[in-house]
Design a protein around this nucleic acid. Structure first.
Lengths: 208, 208
DNA sequence: GCCTGTGAAGCTATTCACAGCT
DNA sequence: AGCTGTGAATAGCTTCACAGGC
């Protein structure tokens, strides 16, 4: 039941989000074709993905919302929750906090780091910010395994290496840089410049 | 020679970035296996991609850097350059300006929009910010075809529709929302929350 | 010898389509 | 009748491996 592709995980996360919304509205069950309309995937795709996490619906009533949500949570979330370290508290770092903080009960940005004395030793959206000098110590102390790189390109490789040395195993990288890290470290690249160049390219293509 | 997949375009953009760096250092030609090491793709992949844009190297000298760059530019960029409209000048919008502005000569964020009177009718990183009420008029006037959604989730659908009505054909969407837009509009989703959930998930998996 | 360009093979991901259930 | 679960088919993407050229 384990070992799921990156694409599948992305969809599972989106299903969960959609289902949480429905759950709040009082819906108690759903068919794959309904979720398909709401998420933009095909119903066959959804059935395959749900199969992959080992949950089964019933042909008569579709998927039980509560149970499916709890299967999704079990699959996606870490048992005791996960802490995240945010490196860089510039506009991007603050944007990440704005968008994210409090959104996922099992995932919390527990530490932020920056060099700016104006930011160091203050709270930002419920998250303490420390000087980058303290990065290794604080991360080891808090046993954080997930990091976010939100610093300028030039600083990103060095800080990523320091995260990894402190035990981080998954990095969300916003800098437009290919990080060179040991292969066991997972890197999710969200290159801000690439994204815009790509959108601009396809704005000119005839879709359809 | 046209019609290239999303994945191919992403790689082409990264090749170009790498090659621009080499060009500045005075390199004049490169073999696919060298670019492979520098970018982390395979040499066969690189040769296929370069084939797709209709450029040919020589077995003896590899790819001529100047010529390959100019083929890449011809393929990736719009002939007269493209203007971009940024909707939302909060932390995320400013981060986009910080990272992007001045990076690509053929792509310029020409307009920003926000509701905050503190921001309206001022410049931010060389880009004028107008009130959101002016969105349609300004975009039509400037013939902008690319938009960036950097507003809270709740506002994103409405603003995306307004962009499209004003003629925008490609949208970079940072909000954690599936935008419902006509199929001819290209949407590049960069859901900030999904990215972090995904990185957290794979931080726990045994890569390799 | 060592490169490029590329047909063919191999993989991965998605969709089809239907048996089986209620 | 209308759903799920899933084998089989298809589509899409990447790598292999080698002919041909300098």
């Amino acid at each position: 039941m384990n070992k799921v592709s990156q694409k599948t995980i992305e969809r599972l996360i989106l299903y969960r989000r959609q289902l949480l919304g429905l759950n709040n509205k009082g819906t108690t069950s759903i068919f794959s074709h309904q979720l398909a309309v709401q998420t933009g995937f095909t119903s066959a795709q959804i059935r395959r993905d749900i199969m992959a996490i080992g949950y089964s619906g019933s042909p008569a009533h579709g998927y039980d919302l509560e149970k499916l949500l709890s299967s999704l949570n079990d699959f996606i979330d870490a048992p005791g929750g996960q802490g995240v370290a945010l490196v860089g508290l510039g506009h991007l770092g603050r944007a990440v906090l704005d968008y994210f903080q409090g959104r996922r009960p099992n995932l919390k940005i527990m530490l932020a780091f920056d060099n700016d004395p104006q930011k160091v030793n203050r709270m930002a959206q419920g998250c303490p910010c420390y000087h980058t000098d303290e990065l290794e110590n604080r991360i080891i102390e808090q046993k954080v395994k997930v990091g976010i790189i939100a610093v300028p390109a030039i600083e990103s490789q060095d800080l990523a290496e320091r995260l990894v040395r402190a035990g981080v195993r998954g990095i969300l990288n916003y800098a437009p840089v290919k990080l060179e890290l040991p292969p066991e470290v997972y890197v999710e690249n969200r290159d801000m410049i690439l994204a815009l160049e790509k959108a601009a390219f396809f704005a000119r293509q005839v879709t359809i």
